[in-house]
Design a binder for these strands. Structure first.
Length: 603
RNA sequence: GCCACCUUAGCUCAGUUGGUUAGAGCAUCUGUUUUGUAAACAGAGGGUCGUCGGUUCGAAUCCGACAGGUGGCUCCA
């Protein structure tokens, strides 16, 4: 069976779903029912609300329809006839769709969204007693349909517009065989097990409090280690290329964003702060670039000074809609590993090369596969900056990507209005792709802030700005990374790298364990002693549950010969035999593995 | 913000059709035990069942509002 067959099956299932809903609820107004990744959905407008409990009933009705092995019959109607038909059957949404399809050269954005305008006929598909406007691509007989399952219901605005009525959307997934369906469900199950919110609690990484508010996670000591190690690495990668750390305050007058243009664009996402002492109206910063322009602008710059590279890992605040908040992936306090380069336009390529190199290193170290999307301008006139500048910048981006041997694809019309960009797509351990790092060129802010440098010939020229974040946001990166690793962090990131377990609570044992702890701390190793009055088995289990990379059990034997056989978390192991080694050597190895940011143990 | 669902001990969850003092495991604390690579034994403490209001002789259970959470609200016949 081909990919088309699967598409047709999914399409047919949407149709049958509509049929089943009609049968069960009567009086339904139908919206659209497209095929989506892994399945399909259909939007309905009906009196009573459908809840997830009703899905089984609907699913059973769908199975009954399929078991009748009905045929899909196509009927082409002239637009006028079709309009008449849907009016009679009381289907206002279908009527709207047909009108849009028929409209010629319409300037309404909605009509052009639909695409093939100016149609003279439209098609209907009939299965059993149920007849629906449909572009087609159906199976011939319902029994050709494979495995499916209705997943959930949700609200969805008619044509995605908040001002339109809200409809009820039913989602389903569909595959050729029950086995593939099973596999997909297993994948979802696995994703649930790895859910960063669940692991964040189990591994004691971050917490939320109703008193602090939603979308504002706090990090425990363990979680803070993760954040700081990642941020430190992200900064190190760029310091190699001459980036310097700067610091900017978290509040600013809103004038800064009026000048940058962000006020007009993001006004309702900004948190306002009122001064009780003065009449100042301040905002919490939602991004750092405007601040950085002011550091750049603080003194006259020569072409010899460029590129100037600023690094600023800091938290910004955005007022997201409450319904869009969740875990660490959507928050209101967002920490960015932000950087900005101010350079001459001919320096773009070498700067890009540095940043791509840094990104490649970063994602190799966290073992995620990377590919990039190059987003260019198209021929419309919404873009600011000269066409020559765009042309040259886009070429330089591409050259740098090719030089770095990155897998890439190009998309026209996806650029921001202020410049072309590169988005990095990282694939996690269960095959999901996430957009994390970005590099964006910016021709607009240098202009708005009147940034300049003196060129060789003594004239004033405008620098180009390059925005870059390697992690993207620390919170979002962590949400992805926790799920990617399922909480089994590599040695260099593990909040607790070594756990020392005592066999008993006798003085000698405790003192010996403490002495190892002290030595480990001196080497910068994150270590904990478990001296609880519990069985060794229990203490081993606790260390395993916290996914600690190395566990040492300390008893008489270790005290007498000063050697250990470390217990190593299974995913870190390459060799099957583990040698006994001197405690000093073990600690040195761990310190070195941390420094080298290795993925596996050498023990 | 909108739609659906959820909220019982620190955590994970039971709790029949509304019916007396709301349960379990883990965790915590106290004893006993001094333990050798994934859970020793015993006992104790811990909940105004998310909050507020309503219905009822009686509410964890039914209704409403609010708060917090989960899945969606981008996929265009």
């Amino acid at each position: 069976m081909s990919q088309d067959d699967l598409q047709n099956q999914r399409h047919s299932l949407a149709h049958i779903l509509a049929h089943a809903v009609q049968d069960i609820y009567g009086n339904v107004k139908f919206g659209v029912g497209p095929v989506i990744e892994n399945g399909f959905y259909y939007d309905f407008d009906l009196e009573q609300s459908i809840s997830e409990e009703d899905l089984e009933k609907i699913e059973n009705r769908m199975k009954e329809i399929i078991d009748q092995d009905l045929s899909f019959e196509r009927e082409d109607l002239m637009v006028e006839t079709a309009l008449d038909k849907v009016r009679k059957s009381g289907q206002p949404y279908k009527e709207e769709l047909i009108s849009d399809l028929a409209q010629k050269g319409s300037t309404s954005p909605e009509a052009s969204e639909i695409g093939n305008q100016g149609a003279e006929t439209v098609s209907f598909y009939k299965v059993g007693e149920f007849d629906d406007l449909c572009r087609g691509g159906h199976v011939e007989k319902t029994k050709q349909i494979g495995a499916f399952k209705l997943m959930r219901v949700s609200g969805a605005y008619w044509r995605g517009k908040e001002t339109n009525p809200q409809m009820q959307r039913i989602y389903g997934i569909a595959f050729q065989t029950p086995k593939e369906l099973r596999q997909h469900l297993d994948m979802l199950e696995e994703a649930k097990k790895r859910d960063h919110r669940k692991l964040g609690k189990e591994l004691d990484l971050f917490v939320l409090s109703d008193l602090v508010g939603s979308g504002m996670p706090m990090f425990t000591p363990r979680g803070t280690v993760l954040r700081e190690e990642l941020e430190k690495y992200s900064n190190e990668l760029r310091k190699e290329y001459g980036f310097e750390k700067v610091w900017t305050p978290h509040m600013t007058k809103k004038d800064l964003y009026e000048t940058s243009g962000h006020w007009a664009k993001f006004g309702d996402e900004l948190f306002l702060v009122k001064s009780q002492e003065t009449s100042d109206e301040l905002v919490l910063k939602p991004m750092n670039c405007p601040h950085h322009t002011q550091i750049y602008a603080s003194s006259p710059r020569s072409y010899r000074d460029l590129p100037i590279r600023y690094l600023d890992t800091t938290t910004v605040y955005r007022d997201e809609k409450t319904g869009e908040l969740g875990g660490l992936s959507r928050v209101r306090s967002i920490t960015q590993d932000d950087s900005h380069v101010f350079c001459r336009s001919e320096q773009i390529e070498s700067e890009m090369d540095n940043l791509l190199h840094a990104a490649r290193d970063m994602y190799a170290t966290v073992s995620m596969k990377l590919r990039v999307r190059l987003s260019y301008r198209d021929n419309t006139d919404v873009y600011l900056g000269s066409a020559e500048l765009w042309q040259s910048a886009q070429e330089q981006l591409k050259n740098a990507v090719i030089a770095n041997k990155l897998e890439f694809f190009e998309v026209e019309g996806e650029a921001a209005f202020y410049g072309p960009k590169i988005d990095f797509m990282a694939t996690d351990a269960i095959g999901r792709e996430h957009q994390l790092a970005t590099v964006q060129l910016d021709f607009v802010q240098p202009d708005r802030f009147g940034l300049a440098y003196t060129a060789e010939d003594g004239t004033e020229k405008q620098p180009v700005m390059i925005h870059n974040a390697l992690l993207g946001s620390t919170e979002r990166f962590l949400s992805v990374y926790i799920e990617h690793t399922a909480g089994k962090f590599p040695i260099w990131l593990a909040p607790e790298q070594v756990r020392i377990i005592t066999v008993n609570q006798e003085y000698e044992t405790t003192e010996f364990a403490r002495s190892i702890e002290v030595k480990a701390r001196e080497l910068g190793i994150r270590v904990q002693v478990d001296n609880d009055n519990e069985s060794v088995g229990k203490k081993i289990r606790n260390a395993e549950l916290m996914k600690v990379p190395y566990t040492l059990v300390i008893g008489e034997k270790e005290i007498s010969n000063g050697r250990v056989v470390p217990r190593i978390r299974k995913d870190l192991v390459v060799l099957s035999a583990h040698p006994e080694l001197a405690i000093e050597d073990f600690l040195k190895t761990v310190a070195n593995e941390t420094k080298m940011r290795v993925q596996k143990t050498s023990l």
